[in-house]
Computed example of a mutant assay.
Amino acid sequence: MADAPLTGLRVIEMGSLIAGPFCGQVLGDFGAEVIKLEDPAAGDPMRQWGRTKPKGHSPWWPVIGRNKTSVTLDLRAAEGRDLARALIAKADVVVENFRPGTMEKWGLGYDDLAAVNPGLVMTRVSGFGQTGPYARRAGYALIGEAMGGLRHITGEPDRPPARAGISIGDSLAGLNAALGTMMALHARQRTGRGQVVDAAIYESVLTVMENLITEYDLSGYVRERSGAILPGIAPSNVYPTRGGELVLIGANQDTLFKRLCEAMGRPELAQDPRYRDHAARGAHQVQLDATIAGWTVEHDIDALLPLLDAAGVAAGRVYRAPDMLADPQFQARQSIVEVVHPVFGTVKMQNAFPRLSDTPGGVRWPGPALGEHTEAVLRKVAGLSDEAIAGLRERKVI
């Protein structure tokens, strides 16, 4: 990874769970040296997460902890905070996702740290941001997803709001934090100064909500749950096939719809006044979807997909993990990689994205054992002697 785009960048990751650590994962994927500080007693709770525990270990940790070094440090002890301060003094970035006010209580607020490291970028991830009346509330992804507008529009219209199936609010906040970190580092090249990156989960969700606010502001329309469709955008839905599998078809543009009609053997549908243009198809969405479903259910999906592909119509299966592993597109691009693991032997996980042509990212190693790199990092970065490290261990600071 000597040619990775972030090689030479040192990041101190503090905090736990997903939002902050996902930011660290993204930076580490592209070559940053990510030093993760963990509580000596238990470490990041992600080490324990998982519906399954193959060989007694979490399947979450190899991914969220990848490309990081693990240093145990008791931040509740004065000596531990002093050590954290010493490490941060020699870092470019510190990423934290404690409840706002915690770092300040420990004497590790931005003003304190910038006094010894003026170029430091401090990336702060929280539920509601560092300011405002909700700042110090406990913030989790589900609340941020609800406040940001995502939960209300997710699911079927006749049921309560659903979740996406993953902690998407946390991941969006982590991506926003990584993006903000790179912006701040770019600004530092010009100014020589660091700054605070304030990534709130609810705002990270809000930023991907398209025109939801503007549409309401201009027309009073409140977007509601619509299941698998987008109201007024047709055809774009999930349809049944003869074998019971589902096929997704998106053909809402006039040219695409015409090609779909030809593939269906119903070219006259493209000239039907009910379906002739975008607005007409949207107005007759239910009827059109029923017509298409009546056609797809007569075909096995393995025959249907090549037919739609030949017609230039966007279509695909609903993938699960085994489908991804078997798919030739995933294989050709190495979208999933196999990484050597000390317990599992090897473990498969998603690769580093996006792809850079000259300086790509990658997965160098999976999440490390708790405290695996404590002594090496304290020697290299903090300059501690073996005797000093032994004393810290004896006092349970590390």
Rank of each mutant, 00 (worst) to 15 (best):
V313N: 05
D289E: 11
L307Y: 14
A303W: 06
T296P: 02
M324H: 01
V286C: 00
I301A: 12
R317C: 06
G294L: 00
A290Y: 03
D300T: 12
T291H: 00
V313A: 03
I301Y: 06
E298H: 13
L307E: 14
R320A: 11
R317A: 04
A311N: 02
A310I: 05
A314D: 04
A293G: 13
T291K: 02
L304P: 01
H284A: 12
H299F: 08
L325F: 13
D323H: 13
L307F: 14
R317V: 06
T296K: 02
M324A: 11
W295S: 09
G294I: 10
G312N: 07
Y319S: 12
A311T: 02
A321S: 08
H299E: 14
G294Q: 03
H299S: 12
Q287L: 08
G316F: 02
E298F: 10
V286D: 11
L308Q: 10
R317L: 05
D289V: 04
P306M: 08
G294R: 07
W295C: 07
D289C: 00
L307V: 13
A315E: 04
D302W: 11
V297E: 15
L305E: 05
D289K: 01
T296V: 10
W295V: 01
A321N: 11
V313S: 01
R320S: 11
R317W: 01
A321F: 05
D300N: 14
G312V: 06
V286Y: 08
V313Q: 01
A310G: 15
Q287K: 02
A303E: 15
A293Q: 02
L288T: 04
I292R: 01
T291I: 14
A321C: 07
D302Y: 11
G294C: 05
A314T: 15
I301P: 03
P306G: 06
I292F: 00
T296N: 07
T291G: 02
Q285R: 09
V313W: 05
R320C: 05
L307P: 03
V297Y: 11
H284W: 03
L304R: 15
V286W: 06
A311G: 01
W295Y: 03
D309V: 07
I292H: 02
P322M: 10
V313C: 10
I292G: 05
R320F: 02
M324Y: 00
W295L: 05
D300V: 15
